[in-house]
């Protein structure tokens, strides 16, 4: 069995695929970092939760 010699097209494809792969890995890492930042900051989320719980409590108290 003999291996086919590598054609120039294979090198081009390898370069392109490695580039896309690295970009995707960088995107995943960035999304992870952004998620961590959003979750640890969480100011807006806390405010929204607080507003909802206050609203719910007020509704319960004023209910007949």
């Amino acid at each position: 069995m003999s291996f086919r010699p590598e054609h120039e097209i294979h090198r081009r494809r390898l370069g392109r695929n490695v580039g896309v792969g690295l970009l995707l890995a960088a995107f995943v890492a960035l999304m992870f970092a952004l998620s961590i930042v959003k979750v640890t900051q969480g100011d807006l989320m806390h405010q929204a939760d607080h507003a909802q719980s206050v609203g719910a409590a007020a509704t319960t108290e004023t209910a007949p």
Binding site: H7, R16, V18, G19
Partner: peptide, 15 residues
């Protein structure tokens, strides 16, 4: 692969 000419396949830099 012989059906591709020199300009038929883009490299990463082209994108």
């Amino acid at each position: 692969i012989r059906s591709f000419d020199d300009t038929g396949e883009a490299q990463f830099g082209d994108y």
